[in-house]
Measured scan of single mutants.
Amino acid sequence: NKEKKVFISLVGSRGLGCSISSGPIQKPGIFISHVKPGSLSAEVGLEIGDQIVEVNGVDFSNLDHKEAVNVLKSSRSLTISIVAAAGRE
């Protein structure tokens, strides 16, 4: 599966507009579980089932849900590497 990078700058009070969840035991990782229509996440093409592999240089493969949320909230400017639809297989 091809990795792609998206860049998101949080402007004003707009949030990311997506929710994440941890994958099942047999498929660990952090996946996008919800994308709000019209949100920044939707605008850059994030979709439900995409796996987040890295954010701002932080490897997401071994993070738990709480740590992942903290990384996503730690910066107003995010570089997110995803594997599209990895969670839909």
Results as ranks from 00 to 15, higher is better:
Asn1Ser: 15
Lys2Ser: 08
Lys2Pro: 06
Lys4Ser: 07
Lys4Thr: 07
Lys4Val: 04
Lys5Asp: 03
Lys5His: 05
Val6Phe: 13
Val11Ile: 11
Ser13Gln: 14
Arg14Phe: 03
Arg14Glu: 14
Gly15Ser: 14
Gly15Arg: 09
Gly15Ile: 07
Gly15Val: 08
Leu16Lys: 01
Gly17Ser: 01
Gly17Arg: 02
Cys18His: 03
Cys18Pro: 00
Ser19Gly: 08
Ser19Asp: 10
Ser19Trp: 06
Ile20Pro: 00
Ile20Cys: 02
Ile20Glu: 00
Ile20Ser: 02
Ser21Lys: 13
Gly23His: 06
Gly23Gln: 06
Pro24Trp: 09
Pro24Tyr: 08
Pro24Asp: 11
Pro24Thr: 14
Ile25Leu: 12
Ile25Gln: 11
Pro28Phe: 04
Pro28Gln: 09
Pro28Asp: 07
Gly29Cys: 03
Gly29Ser: 02
Ile30Leu: 06
Phe31Ala: 00
Ile32Met: 03
Ile32Leu: 05
Ile32Cys: 03
Ser33Thr: 13
Ser33Ala: 09
Ser33Phe: 01
His34Trp: 10
His34Glu: 14
Val35Glu: 00
Val35Leu: 05
Val35Gln: 03
Val35Met: 04
Val35Ile: 13
Lys36Gly: 07
Lys36Cys: 11
Leu40Cys: 13
Ser41Asp: 02
Ala42Leu: 01
Ala42Thr: 05
Ala42Gly: 05
Ala42Lys: 07
Ala42Tyr: 10
Glu43Thr: 08
Glu43Lys: 11
Glu43Leu: 06
Glu43Pro: 01
Glu43Gln: 12
Glu43Ser: 11
Val44Asn: 13
Val44Pro: 02
Val44Trp: 06
Leu46Thr: 00
Ile48His: 09
Ile48Ser: 12
Gly49Ala: 03
Gly49Arg: 00
Gly49Tyr: 02
Gly49Trp: 01
Asp50Pro: 00
Asp50Tyr: 01
Asp50Val: 02
Gln51Val: 02
Gln51Ile: 02
Ile52Asp: 01
Val53Ala: 11
Glu54Leu: 03
Val55Met: 04
Val55Pro: 03
Val55Ile: 06
Val55Asn: 02
Gly57Ser: 15
Asp59Ala: 09
Asp59Tyr: 04
Phe60Trp: 09
Phe60Cys: 06
Phe60Val: 06
Ser61Pro: 08
Lys66Thr: 11
Lys66His: 15
Val71Ala: 09
Ser74Ala: 10
Arg76His: 12
Arg76Gly: 11
Arg76Glu: 13
Ser77Gly: 07
Ser77Thr: 15
Leu78Glu: 04
Leu78Ile: 06
Thr79Tyr: 09
Ile80Ala: 04
Ile80Tyr: 04
Ser81Glu: 07
Ile82Pro: 04
Ile82Gln: 04
Ile82Cys: 15
Val83Tyr: 09
Val83Asp: 07
Val83Ile: 14
Val83Lys: 13
Ala84Val: 09
Ala84Glu: 15
Ala85Thr: 09
Ala85Val: 08
Ala85Phe: 08
Ala86Pro: 15
Gly87Leu: 10
Gly87Pro: 13
Gly87Lys: 14
Gly87Asp: 15
Arg88Tyr: 11
Arg88Ala: 14
Arg88Ser: 14
Glu89Thr: 13
Glu89Ile: 09
Glu89Arg: 09
